[in-house]
Design a protein around this nucleic acid. Structure first.
Lengths: 139, 139
DNA sequence: CATTAGATTTGAAACATTCTAATCTGTTGA
DNA sequence: TCAACAGATTAGAATGTTTCAAATCTAATG
């Protein structure tokens, strides 16, 4: 009955992604995936880990975020020049971006309908289509 | 008959935007707006200016790009972590992003139809809606 | 043409991110 | 169980982009 061990789901998730479940990766996975969907920067996650008495270097945080992204456990969101956000929601969705605060919020994929899209130019194939809805504070 | 003077259109454009038509701003405006629509980074524009024997510091390039953006002469496009592109096309359009090369290409606004969009959350109002179509090399 | 608000410049600083080389640790198979 | 090794982690240096600060310059005005 593996499912009753506290870390088993995360361990399995890492193994399925082809990543060794090391102490650091497990700690970061815990911070990332247990609280529900989140958007974090590397620096934020590093600070959180430090706050929770997990010793993880910033370089490892970067490595881990990129590995997780490459394996489809995270999605990188680029909306803010000079800072990358990583999104734990890898499903079909888009984003509200609050320009004032720099915050991101998920928008369910069903709430955005793309009725028409151009074809991919010759020699390329369509990847992800990202919709960012920028918001300003109402005045 | 001002319109016959070579720099008059650019001078007017800057003045209308409330910006003093200084030597540097005119030189950069010339590089940006005369060849048609373009996507440039600060570093690229600085190199171009240097190549054309225009003495402009990198700080001024950054200042100018941001001022032009604030005044609606340019549009900032964020697709690449750690680098900002500035687009001289400020009309209704979206972008192809070639992940392999990092190149951007305009997609006319009419080629993308957003049939459904969520409402802006309370206290905010809709800004720009950006659609980025990521492309991978066909294999 | 003198004044001055605004623009420009250089160089340093601030940031985020990546790299490097040394050390450590899960995993594997004996 | 444990030795061996591929892979992971680390600190700190390095890189690249962007911003800042203070001194100098210049376009616009009267």
């Amino acid at each position: 009955m593996q499912a009753s061990r506290p870390f088993a789901p995360l361990v399995d998730r890492l193994k399925q992604a082809g990543l060794r479940p090391t102490r650091q990766r497990l700690a970061l996975a815990k911070l990332l995936f247990e609280p529900g969907f989140r958007h974090v920067t590397a620096e934020q996650l590093h600070a959180e880990a430090a706050g929770a008495n997990m010793r993880v270097s910033l370089a490892t945080v970067y490595n881990t975020l990129h590995q997780f992204t490459r394996q489809g456990l995270l999605r990188e969101v680029v909306v803010d020049p000079g800072r990358s956000y990583f999104d734990t929601n890898t499903g079909d969705h888009h984003h509200f971006f609050f320009e004032e605060s720099g915050d991101l919020q998920d928008v369910d994929g069903a709430e955005v309908q793309l009725a028409r899209l151009p074809e991919a130019p010759a020699g390329t194939k369509l990847g992800r289509v990202e919709v960012v809805i920028r918001l300003q504070r109402q005045k």
